[in-house]
Design a binder for these strands. Structure first.
Lengths: 224, 224
DNA sequence: GACACCTTTGACGCGTTCTTGACGGCCGCT
DNA sequence: AGCGGCCGTCAAGAACGCGTCAAAGGTGTC
């Protein structure tokens, strides 16, 4: 989750930003003045800072420079002042963007997206561990004792459904529907076939599976 | 020297921007419409693009997307329209900043500095090594055993998508969408054709690729 | 207008994957 | 004990996808 630090001394604006950003999937922290902002930045290490100028305790450029010493996270400045000199000062101090109030919330969100897009895609993908095997669903990569294991498309789909419901029982019908389509209900032999292949490739002892379990008469279950 | 491409159909504005940017030490190229812009971008490989919307021949978003396929250079959009919807569309298409006319030239220069500051230090050497081959995505240059290798535009786009997701599997659908457009879903023969060409040019043994791998039925993967 | 280059399109052989059927073992039920 | 249901395993042919070659269509250059 992308972490955003909102710095604003006006509670209404801070609240509005928190609500909107949270609604779009960001993790929001707020600070009401410069000192709080620098402390909060050190604590949460945000991926982006939305900074209102005109804070009660510090000058805007000071806050920007204080942040720039720590972090390379984009800084998006809000301000009531439209004067060019202020914008230039803020941008040259290290801000990445400057928006004057009153601002359109949609536009602000678009600018937030533009700013995070640049620095964003350096993230690692989540990896699921199955005993000696690691599965990276995003990269579509399986490793067993370090070397890679190749799965066929059908094997991937089946494994993905199970892994996305860790610990839960997935019925045969649901597995068939998700992998082969809604017209498949009773082809349980497909499941037997491919579960066996998955176990051969992923389980330490395919005859005695520990993670890819059969629930007789019901379905299959992935145990982490 | 930092190279800036200025795209504007109004000669006075283009001239004013050229003079001001040149005076501040930038190397300026100008283009008067979208087609020229894309051609010029391919030729000079700019470090930043200043793009006026409302070009005579193409929609603004088209130009942005055309540029984004090639390059990660920041795009600073100029526009006479202050409507939020347009700003949002441009930013989400891949623009980095949006300035409404009339604009203060000092502020514009500050935004140019802010944009180049970000990509400047990090974009020093984005060179990817593929065995005996080195690929410089920013400079758009490939060398194999020291000699230059020529890639066609389509080959570049395909290679770029793969290189920007190192280790990750990229589905054939995504590759088709990113290189040929959202209307292409099943033309996997294009992928076969161009992957073969890339392998001929980049792999030591094109018949046994080590870095540009096929995942049958799913997609392709670049392994560093 | 001829030429070169790139893109698009079609066809074929081959290896892999999917589908399908059959068999035997384990378990619970009668 | 006998039986039927369910699962794991094995072994086939069919179908699919990939790499490759070849050639036509399109565009800009000389």
């Amino acid at each position: 989750m992308i972490k955003v630090l909102v710095v604003d001394d006006e509670p209404q604006i801070a609240r509005a930003l928190r609500i909107n950003l949270s609604a779009h999937g960001y993790e929001v922290t707020t600070a009401a003045d410069g000192a709080q902002a620098l402390r909060a930045a050190a604590a949460v290490v945000p991926d982006l800072v939305v900074l209102d100028l005109g804070l009660p305790d510090m000058d805007g450029a000071e806050v920007i420079e204080g942040l720039r010493g720590w972090s390379k996270a984009p800084i998006l400045v809000l301000s009531g002042r439209a004067a060019s000199a202020e914008k230039i000062a803020a941008l040259d101090a290290g801000a990445d963007d400057y928006v004057t109030k009153p601002f359109d919330i949609g536009e602000l969100l678009a600018r937030v997206r533009a700013a995070t897009r640049r620095s964003g895609p350096g993230a690692e993908s989540p990896v699921t561990a199955i005993g000696p095997v690691t599965v990276d669903l995003a990269a579509r990569e399986v490793r067993k004792d370090g070397d890679e294991v190749r799965l066929t498309p059908t094997e991937w789909q089946l494994l993905e459904v199970l892994l996305r419901n860790p610990g839960k029982l997935v019925s045969q019908r649901e597995l068939l529907h998700r992998v082969w389509g809604p017209n498949y209900d009773r082809e349980t032999n497909y499941l037997r076939q491919y579960m066996a292949q998955l176990r051969r490739k992923l389980e330490a002892d395919p005859a005695r599976p520990v993670h890819l379990l059969t629930e007789p008469g019901m379905g299959y279950r992935f145990r982490p």
